[in-house]
Design a protein around this nucleic acid. Structure first.
Lengths: 111, 111
DNA sequence: TTTATTCATCGTATAAAAACGATTAAAGAA
DNA sequence: TTCTTTAATCGTTTTTATACGATGAATAAA
């Protein structure tokens, strides 16, 4: 019985988990890094640079887009993607808030 | 054919993805947050605080431990867990390096 | 108009994750 | 020793993720 229970957690927890999930595959990390460096930007370039089929890359791009981490624009027959820095900063900030802040208060070992 | 291709990416990309994967479930976010706040620390307390069965919580703890994000100590019949801040900082730093640094250079929109 | 090119989507197959109950192992209490 | 408590592990089921080829839609070129 695998009734998933994601909904039974707080919205903040679900949001952070969803963000992390978008980053949880090396292909998506690689895509984001390439977009950050601006070497590749168009879908076809990403396909060439990755060891995956075109349909698979397209699928990963869709997941990143659904998570709000990238934006896509249609440029004729091509699709161009770029990082949504605002979303990225938001999530990184929330992780820092949730953990780093508390870290300072609880530097000593626990058990 | 789902021959997974995680190995075909760089080690750094695989490491970051593995870190993100550990954070990709709200239950694990919740566990980490509780450990950070030090309200709960012992496995049994976490089980009470979460809407999951004991075996499921134990499984999530194991994943966090395998990812190096928490440490566990046996205390008699109990198990006590705490966050590995060093690992946490390492990964957060790498994400910042990979994205935030480049962000400064490429503030303008892409496409 | 016809033909390529580019990419998203669909359908499908396999692998991994998530969840639980049952069992096991180890420590403490009776 | 026997019983209880605590938590890890095992086995199983269901859901989700990953990956690809094939198809389709839209633009550009011939």
């Amino acid at each position: 019985m695998a009734l998933h229970k994601r909904e039974e957690f707080s919205l903040k927890e679900q949001e952070l988990a969803a963000f992390a999930k978008a980053l949880s595959h090396p292909a998506r990390i690689s895509i984001l890094a390439k977009l950050a460096k601006r070497n590749e930007c168009v879908c076809g370039e990403l396909v060439e640079a990755l060891p995956l089929a075109q349909s698979t890359v397209s699928q990963h791009l869709k997941e990143l887009k659904n998570a709000g981490l990238i934006d896509g624009t249609v440029d004729g027959p091509r699709s161009c993607y770029c990082i949504n820095w605002k979303a990225f900063e938001k999530f990184m900030g929330e992780f820092s808030f949730l953990f780093n802040k508390l870290k300072i208060q609880n530097e000593k070992a626990c058990c």
